[in-house]
Amino acid sequence: MGPATRLHIDAVHKAYGRRSVLRGTDFTVSAGMLAGVVGENGSGKSTLLRIAVGMLSPDRGTVRRSGTLGYCPQKSVINDTLTVAQHLRLFQVAYRLPDLHYAWELVDLLGFHAERRTRAGELSGGTRQKLNLALALMHDPPLLVLDEPYQGFDWDTHQRFWHLAGRLRSRGQAVVVVSHLLHDFQHFDSIHHLREGRLHAEAVTR
């Protein structure tokens, strides 16, 4: 492992009833690394990420993290009755942030500043996902775990997301992204294919 390991998953097993999803999965992410996790639908990518962030308990194996982390779930987890600004205020309290300058920068970057007073229930699918992502990034954590964070993004925002991910990596942050899109693979430093409950490293082609 490198000098600054942010996430280390060792021999993690997880089953839902008789259906075994993870069978001894190992995964390590270091600072300044942009890692891709790929795999077929239902292969266990989201389960692996939920275990990585502590939302789900593995049946066996260990998870070690260092530093705060930001987690962007696959399905937007927001409150439809609250506006964009109210979401930022709630998470400002949760993260104990002194101000929201960086959060609003992210909102600008992702291109939904005009929706700051709009209730989440009235946002388009893509904008809901932008808010979902902004809530994971707004405290600028050293480890980011993003589960298909750009679903519903238009092409420009999709490109801006990868530009942002690259910027975070160059600042020394560790970024894990679940992706299905072949043309995204060029952005990764390492690609890990989840197959039959285990992660297999794949060659990166740029």
């Binding site: 962030v53 993290r65 993260y95 405290h139 954590p141």
Partner: peptide, 12 residues
């Protein structure tokens, strides 16, 4: 310092 942060890591 990182270890201490890890013990109270925040997840969003």
């Amino acid at each position: 310092n990182e270890c201490r942060e890890g013990d109270r890591s925040a997840v969003s």
